[in-house]
């Protein structure tokens, strides 16, 4: 294999190279799926084989990568030369249960029969935590699977997890069901899942916007998760608007001099500059207000002392080229790398 002249990229602080499982969560509407996909691509760019997993039956990975709906199997989404590659998997609780029954009890045929009878749906409905147990169980299986040569099948797994409101319950569903089934094989299997999710090799990243509610949910989730013994990775600030305001150009009340602006616009060749100046002044004042709110919310996040990554607003829909741009945000810039 030819030696690479350029050093492989390195992930930023908060994304430890030793992490086997990256869990990405965030309030609804913050873009956690896009963030999970971009993080998966970034890790693949560091030369590793990565599995991107979704568990909410939305086929969000297929939408993002513009491929047909994913079946219950792992498919390659992107490659980065050598081992660097990103794979995708949409976990379905029913299929996971059948696989599970087959793997542990060699009950595949009975399992299929039970599915036809609606039994799988029945059981996952009655003990709702069981659905999450199956989903996290499959994540664990993928994260700890080894190839025949003994190497891990994937260097890293990135999980597009349920939103912050549900994340603690989702990750600890196994504990709850372990309580319902105090004995037996499910109980034994649970222990392994609980161990993996609470181990330092599993890190949880929180996606947020610099708005009040998402930041509040992020702070709440961070403290919940930490108190439950999970390891937090990074805060990912999504859709940050660029800092464009020079405070010295606004007066104390946050307004600008529209006449002066009109003069400037005239020089820039804008006709009817007075009418445009009034509109632009209104936009600047509102933008400045947003910027202040954005800064205040960024400051609230400072209490978390977690590494932070900022992603720009690319105005979705995001395509693969744009995902790669977002992926770069997770990597240490070449200029900061040593020789």
């Amino acid at each position: 294999m030819p030696r690479n002249a350029i050093a492989a990229p390195i992930l930023r602080d908060g994304f430890p190279a030793a992490a086997r499982l990256h869990v990405v969560t965030g309030k609804g509407g913050t873009g956690k799926t896009t963030v999970a996909a971009a993080l998966g691509l970034a890790i693949a760019q560091t030369g590793r084989k990565v599995l991107l997993v979704e568990v909410e039956g939305r086929q969000a990975i297929a939408q993002l990568f513009a491929v047909p709906a994913l079946p219950y199997e792992e498919l390659r989404l992107a490659t980065h030369g050598g081992r660097g590659s990103l794979w995708g998997l949409a976990i379905d609780a029913e299929e996971a249960m059948i696989e599970y029954l087959d793997m542990f009890y060699r009950l595949k045929r009975s399992a299929r029969g039970l599915k036809r009878m609606g039994a799988v749906d029945f059981v996952t409905t009655l003990a709702p935590g069981l659905r999450d147990v199956l989903l996290t169980g499959k994540v664990k299986e993928a994260a700890s699977r080894t190839d025949p040569d003994g190497h891990p099948s994937y260097d890293a797994v990135v999980l597009d997890a349920p939103p912050t409101g549900r994340i603690a319950k989702f990750l600890d569903a196994t504990k709850e069901v372990a309580g319902l089934t105090r004995f037996g094989p499910i109980n034994r299997q649970s222990v392994g899942v609980i161990e993996l999710l609470h181990a330092p090799r599993t890190v949880i990243h929180l996606v947020t916007l610099l708005e009040e509610m998402p930041v509040q949910e992020t702070l709440d989730a961070a403290s919940d998760l930490a108190s439950l013994g999970f390891h937090l990775g990074a805060i990912v600030v999504n859709r940050a608007r660029p800092d464009l305001i020079s405070d010295d150009l606004l007066d104390a009340a946050g307004t600008i001099d529209a006449k002066l602006l009109a003069a400037g616009l005239r020089r820039a060749g804008i006709p009817t500059s007075a009418a445009h100046a009034a509109a632009l002044a209104a936009e600047v004042e509102e933008y400045a207000q947003r910027q202040r709110i954005q800064r205040e919310n960024a400051a609230r996040l400072d209490t978390l002392t977690l590494p932070r990554v900022e992603l720009p607003d690319l105005n979705p829909p995001v395509d693969l080229g744009e995902l790669n741009r977002l992926a770069d945000c997770f990597l240490v810039p070449a200029s900061e790398l040593g020789p």
Partner: peptide, 23 residues
């Protein structure tokens, strides 16, 4: 395009440049 026409750092130009970037 208008932004590219603006040079200098007197207040009118800086203000217009900021407003055009925001816009």
């Amino acid at each position: 395009v208008a932004l590219a026409q603006l040079h200098g750092d007197e207040p009118a130009a800086r203000l217009a440049a900021m407003a055009l970037r925001v816009h």
